[in-house]
Every structure is written in C-alpha cells, then in structure tokens.
Amino acid sequence: MNSKTSGAKNTETVKRGLAQMLKGGVIMDVVNAEQAKIAEDAGAAAVMALERVPADIRADGGVARMSDPEKILEIQESVTIPVMAKCRIGHFVEAELLQALGVDYVDESEVLTPADEEHHVAKSNFDVPFVCGCRNLGEALRRIGEGAAMMRTKGEAGTGDVVEAVRHMRHVMADVRKLQTMSADERPTFAKEISAPLALVEEVAELGRLPVVNFAAGGVATPADAALMMRLGADGVFVGSGIFKSGDPALRARAVVEATTNFEDPRKIAEVSRNLGEAMVGIANSSLQPEEMLAGRGW
C-alpha cells in the first residue's frame, strides 16, 4: 500500500495543473496583507501581490518594477490561497527572485516597465510556473512555447475599460476557430503567419482550445464585465485595480466572484450587482495615446 514520496516536481502537468485549479475563479490584485485577507474572505481563488495596482502605476508614471520582497512575504503569510507576483518582461533575475521567495505563479507582465524589448524570459528553465499576457493566438503560443503554463488576455490594465480584454479574447477565440476549419496542409502556413510554433498550432487544432488555461485580464471592473469575459470563453478572471479602487472593495470582490461562477445566469448577476457603490473611475481606452497603452509591450 506504500508508494514513493519522491515524486517528480515542476512537471508540465503540475505547472499547468495549478492554473486548472483556479478555473472559474477570480484572481485579485492586492498591495498588502489587509487587502489579501479581504480578497480571500470574498472568495478570491488567488491573489496577485503588487506594490501598486495598475491604475496607480499609470497615474504615477516612472519605472514600474517587481514588488518589494517584504510585501510579497507579508501577503504570503496572511492567506492560504495561492500568491502570484509580477516580474518585468524579460527580467529573468526578478523572476528568479520571485521563485526564491516561493511565489506560486510568476506573471511576466506588460503592466510593469519592460526590461527587455526583444526577449521574454525563457520560462521552461524555471521550476515556478508562469502566466503571460496575449492579444491573439500567435502571441499566446509564443509564450507557451517559451514555457508559460497559463495565459491571460492583456486587455488594458488600470483603465477599468473592458474593451481591450474583449478584443483580445475574441481575437484568440476567433483564431482557434479559424484553425479548426483548416486542413492539415494549411496549418504550417497559418503557423508562419501568426509566428507560432507549428507543434503548438497542431495541438490547438486538435484540442479546439489553448493547451493551457486562459484567463481574462486588463480592465475588468464590474460583475457584468467578469461574466462577459467568461461568456466569451475565458476560464476565469483577473481583476486588478477594479476592486480596491472602488467604493466598497469587499462587497465588489464578492460580487465579481459570484458573477464569475454564475456567468450564464443574468438574474444572479443582476442580484449581486445591486448597490455595489462606486466602480473605479476609469479611463476610456479611446482617450489613451498609443504610447500610454500597456498592451503593446512584449511581442
């Protein structure tokens, strides 16, 4: 009846598996232990430990970097749910630090100022799993090719405007559907067109979806936003500034969690959307200058 304990760690199954456990859930940006506790009590499936939420990064300007390790440790101590943290695109040393701190997932994120404008982190070399942003299927498969074990849309973080997240999710899903209608001999050309590894293109054609979990992120501010992203095919939702930049974070957090679970039930979503207080103020995406858009970071 006894079995080995010395199992294989950090395998693809184990890395992708944690993301599968987060499905149907909400991952919330938090900047301290108090917020992390509020998020956990409201039903968050995980938290993203940050020094500043994207709305503040946008407002403050300057270079946005990995959080102070002290903050991350404080958040890890305060909750039992998984704790994720962000490193800059291409900053493999920040990623190594986060791994050394024992975070459960590293987000190589366009929300921080990129450290490398040409290269992403070689994620397969790490024990810790990575989540990355994408705008379309090609970008998703490039990141998965580098070792990402989970994807999310980039959206446009810190705006409270869901339009870019919708654009990116629709783009990914449309690419997948297009690929499924192709004959085998058309796939290599498609792989070339979207600059994605052919093996992964073949895998998507076979599965009819990405080989890893794909969440929505970037501009989700209301329960209805979260449900919209689920209806478009997201496996779950990241909420950044939308919760702790709103009038009543605890109430809104729980409402977003419930809307994500009941995304196909408008009556329940209407119920949880009542009297939530003020949503984050928000910035309409159409008012942003191209250089103010974060989604263009990475390739």
């Binding site: 009846m1 079995s3 080995k4 294989a8 760690k9 184990v14």
Partner: peptide
Amino acid sequence: RQLESFEVSVDIEGISGGGFPAVF
C-alpha cells in the same frame, strides 16, 4: 507551496492494475 507540488505513482487499495498516477 506550488514549488513542492509533484506527481508520483500511488498504490490504492481496491484499484487493481498497478500504481495510479497521482498529481498533488
């Protein structure tokens, strides 16, 4: 934490046919 997550073959009472691939 996640870094300690693992897979291993486990023998389960009542499940014949060898070890079961268990993902923790």
